[in-house]
Computed example of a mutant assay.
Amino acid sequence: MSKLKKRNPFTTIDRKGQTLRRFFFISSALLATFLVSACQTNEGSGEVTYSDLKAKGYKTGKLGASRENPRGGVGWYVSGNGERYWCVPSVTTVRIGADRFGVFRLANGQVYEVDEQQFAKSLRRDTSDSPQLSDIKAGRPRSQDISFCHKV
């Protein structure tokens, strides 16, 4: 009695020994994932830009922890017209006063002071556009300091 090999249902061997069915299955799954993610919009998610909220006259609170976010993190509550939004920062570097520089940790809002020249040299990044830490904490972020805002 001969032993029969189990055949994988996702592979079909063609004349050259290539596995075509697996390739087509994986590539079609990746294509479908890409198309679904490309077609999604933020309309139903409640996400808006910070500049839109500021243009409508919404007020920004001080930097603090989110009470609704189970993952933690810091950000700002922006409220007005009976609505409330949570805005997540995109700030990674801050100026501390006139002559000091720091790295801002988004998870808990801590700032780690670093040497600005060494930081800029190692990352090849301009640090002149970093916001003041006092402005970030007081609730005066710039539009580019905020990643996104969502309704809470």
Rank of each mutant, 00 (worst) to 15 (best):
97 G>Y: 02
130 S>N: 10
83 E>D: 14
141 P>V: 04
116 E>H: 02
14 D>C: 04
65 A>W: 00
18 Q>A: 03
144 Q>D: 15
126 D>H: 06
118 Q>V: 07
10 F>W: 12
67 R>E: 13
114 V>L: 08
63 L>D: 00
80 G>N: 11
82 G>K: 06
137 K>I: 11
103 V>F: 07
134 S>G: 06
125 R>C: 00
27 S>F: 10
146 I>V: 15
116 E>I: 04
82 G>P: 06
143 S>R: 12
66 S>R: 01
96 I>N: 05
44 G>M: 07
110 Q>I: 07
102 G>D: 01
52 D>S: 15
56 K>E: 14
24 F>A: 10
80 G>S: 12
86 W>L: 08
21 R>A: 12
110 Q>G: 02
79 S>V: 05
41 T>D: 10
57 G>D: 03
4 L>I: 14
21 R>Q: 09
82 G>Y: 05
67 R>L: 11
3 K>M: 10
76 W>K: 04
119 F>R: 00
34 F>G: 09
149 C>F: 07
97 G>S: 03
51 S>L: 09
37 S>C: 11
35 L>C: 14
152 V>M: 14
130 S>Q: 00
60 T>E: 06
96 I>S: 03
107 A>V: 09
115 D>S: 06
65 A>D: 01
84 R>A: 03
101 F>Y: 12
116 E>T: 01
13 I>D: 03
9 P>H: 05
69 N>C: 02
37 S>I: 09
96 I>D: 01
94 V>H: 01
17 G>I: 10
149 C>H: 04
6 K>P: 04
1 M>G: 13
110 Q>C: 03
106 L>C: 07
14 D>Y: 03
57 G>A: 13
118 Q>Y: 08
50 Y>I: 06
139 G>D: 04
5 K>H: 13
87 C>K: 08
63 L>A: 05
66 S>N: 09
46 G>P: 11
79 S>H: 08
18 Q>G: 02
2 S>L: 14
18 Q>P: 00
27 S>C: 12
109 G>A: 07
94 V>A: 01
102 G>A: 05
89 P>G: 02
125 R>Q: 13
29 A>R: 00
15 R>N: 10
74 V>G: 00
31 L>I: 12
109 G>F: 09
48 V>A: 01
127 T>L: 07
146 I>W: 01
15 R>I: 08
31 L>K: 00
70 P>R: 07
12 T>A: 11
56 K>G: 09
51 S>A: 12
58 Y>S: 03
54 K>H: 09
135 D>V: 03
8 N>V: 06
125 R>G: 00
57 G>F: 07
96 I>Y: 02
18 Q>H: 11
98 A>S: 11
41 T>V: 07
85 Y>M: 01
67 R>Q: 13
83 E>C: 05
25 F>R: 06
111 V>N: 02
141 P>I: 03
149 C>N: 08
94 V>N: 04
78 V>I: 13
103 V>A: 11
35 L>M: 15
21 R>M: 08
38 A>T: 01
15 R>G: 08
7 R>S: 14
123 L>R: 14
25 F>N: 08
24 F>M: 12
95 R>Y: 00
7 R>V: 15
117 Q>H: 14
152 V>T: 14
16 K>D: 13
142 R>I: 09
76 W>C: 04
33 T>F: 14
138 A>Q: 12
111 V>E: 01
1 M>N: 12
35 L>H: 03
14 D>N: 15
108 N>G: 05
139 G>K: 03
